[in-house]
Each structure stands twice: as C-alpha cells, then as structure tokens.
Design a protein around this nucleic acid. Structure first.
Lengths: 198, 198
DNA sequence: ACCTGAACACCGTTCAAGT
DNA sequence: ACCTGAACACCGTTCAAGT
C-alpha cells in the first residue's frame, strides 16, 4: 500500500482532532500510518510544511462562494465561516494561527476579505489593512474561545460548580460575543465611508 | 553564588533577545546560568511558568499610569504602549501571545483597557468584550509585524532588491498601519456610544 | 520511486543524593 | 534550602541502504 501526500494529511487531521496539537508529532503520525518517521520526509520537506498542508485543509471551505449580496453581509459571512473552519477540529485555531505567521500573506481568505472591503468603497491599500485587522480579531478570538472550551471540558470533571472563571464567564453565547467584535469592526468601516475617505 | 528567581528571568530575557524564542530552552538557559537543568525546577514548577514570568517582565511597563485625559487618548496610549512592550525584545510578541492563551484573563493590561472603555460610556459587559477585541488586534498585528521584521533582516542579506513580498510591502510606516486598525476600533466604539447603548 | 534502519543532536522533567 | 548527576521518555531530521 503506497502512502500518498493526502493520506499523510488525513492522518495528521485525525491525530489533531483526537489528541490535540501537542500530540501531533512526526513520530506519532508515522506510527499511526504504520511507517517509519523518515518516510514522512519523502512527502514533506519538514514538519512546518506538513502543518501548512493541514492548515490548508482546515481552511478549504473558505473557497466556497458567499451568499450575501451587500458588503457587510459578505464580511460577516466570511468571518463566521473562518471561525467555523477553525472550530471544526480540536486545536484548529491554534494550529492555523501558529502556522500562518507569515503564510497569512498568501491566504485566500485574506484576499477575499480585502476584496469585500474594497467593494464597500474603501481604497485598496486601506482595505488590505482592514482585512488584516479583521483576521487578527477572528484568529485571536477563536484561539481563545477554543482553548476555553477545552479547559472547560477538562475542568468540568474536576471542578463541577465553580463560581466564575473570569470576567467573561457570565457572557452567554460565544457566537454573540464573536458578533460583538465583528459589529465593532463593520461600524468602524462604515464610519470611514462616511468621512473623507481619501 | 545563590541563584534567585529574578536571575533566572534575567537570563531567559537575555537568551530570548539574543537568540530568539526557539533557542530559549531550559537546558540552554541552565547552561547560561552555569547550573544544571534540574536546578531551574527548584525555582519554577515547569517551563510554562517560567515563560509566564518572562511575559510579566515584558509587560511590566503596562502598570505605569496613562497621561491622556479622554478615553480615546487613553485607549490609543495603552494600545501603543502594549505594542512597544512587545517590540522591546526579540520574539516578545510571539512569547506573550503564546503564553497568554488563557493568562489574558488576569492580565493587568486587559483590565485597564476595559476600564477605559467603561469610562467612554460603554456598559461593563460590552466593555470587556471590546477590550478583548482590541487585545486580539494588538497581539495579532504585533506578532505579524515582528516576524516580518525578522524575516526582512534575515532576507536583506540573501535577497537585496526583491520587488515586493506581498500586499503590505508598499505600506510605509508600521506605526501608521497599526494606527489604522486602532482608529477602526475607536470609531466602532464611538458608533456604539451614538446608538442606543443598552 | 518510495521506504527502512539506525543514528545524530537535541528536548522537558524527575529525583535520589549531596552540601 | 538549594543544587548535582544521572536518568527517563521523548522530539525533528538525515541518510545510507534496501526493494
């Protein structure tokens, strides 16, 4: 049985989702694929490249077209879809955020965000900056949200009726909290459209 | 010569700044302090705790009072100061962002940001959310900015007259780019003050 | 072309034992 | 109280050699 590039990514995703990013090692992955660690290096030059391919897989749904017509609807849809991608697998947000340090530049999600902001009427250069701003927010929020989820599902067993873990514990819906920052962002864009935009 | 907790943090900061986060290992740090690796575990329970102490050191200037009187000035000042803290040492942004996954909740910088937003006239719960939003932006932006700086100073020797590295290469001043996102944020806050705030 | 076997140069952490 | 010595259980990566 030949091992293909996609099989390696499949195996990596499986380990990621079941055991988390810390357990996603080349040796463990090789073991799961019933192969020697060195074999992986025929398919990928190094671990970083493998993680990049995993990140691409996680973000694949970002390619699909958006339904919303107006720019603010499209922006909201893209931001939510990005968050959904990151939340699909355990430690997905952390992996993408760690792996896309510089890779963000070529990310297709970033381009589409920027294009949508341009459509709103913001000059190209500023739209690029706005896209980054939104991206930083979505990544930061989702990494935080996901790590809290995992802390909760671990702590729920050891610490059942804990009062509150911090100033965010009382906020009800994670999605509502996400939307708050999103609305702050779109309001900021709208304000730039109102004022002198040049 | 007795080794104290602060000496360990000093040594860690020195290695971080000279060789980067990847080279900040317990063994290397022990070597620099002329001590066995195990000795560090008398002063800190594990590496994570050590990195937390390093992060606290990096963020120490956040405690100083702010000069600006109005809320938007104070917000801008705090955001800039946070960025400055992160840029002071090599890989500072990456270390803080990696180490403060859950530690953000108790961070003093976050509290002060939230307090400032409350002063603007936003209800407490929303102000907390806004503070997180700003924090995610500053961290994301600065990690990106700092990693680009290091890629440039490494690539400048191997790749002198490269055309452009991406859609951000033409933007002139990193500080101006930082301010753009910051203004987007404050405009968003201001918009919430204008509308029904409850 | 694709993989094995085996090594190289590291990690973080623990812990009896020393002083 | 503070540290050494030495081990344990891992890492990512390389590379001759096999098929």
């Amino acid at each position: 049985m030949q091992l293909h590039r996609d099989d390696v990514v499949d195996g990596a995703i499986a380990i990621l989702d079941q055991y988390g990013l810390a357990d996603l090692t080349m040796r463990r992955l090789a073991g799961a694929l019933r192969v020697q660690p060195g074999a992986l290096y025929w398919h990928f030059p190094n671990k970083q490249a493998l993680l990049g391919a995993v990140a691409d897989r996680i973000l694949a749904p970002m390619e699909r077209p958006v339904a919303a017509g107006d720019w603010s609807g499209a922006l909201t849809e893209l931001a939510h879809r990005l968050r959904d991608c990151l939340l699909t697998y355990r430690d997905g947000a952390e992996l993408v955020s760690a792996t896309y340090a510089s890779r963000l530049t070529t990310s297709t999600g970033r381009e589409r965000l920027a294009g949508t902001v341009v459509r709103a009427g913001i000059p190209r250069e500023q739209a690029e900056l706005a896209a980054y701003t939104l991206l930083y927010y979505v990544l930061g929020h989702t990494v935080d949200e996901q790590s809290r989820m995992q802390m909760d599902s671990a702590g729920a067993l050891t610490d059942p009726p804990a009062e509150s873990t911090g100033p965010l514990a009382e906020s009800p819906d994670p999605t509502a909290r996400f939307d708050f920052g999103l609305q702050l962002f779109t309001a900021g864009i709208r304000h730039r459209l109102g004022s002198d935009v040049r």
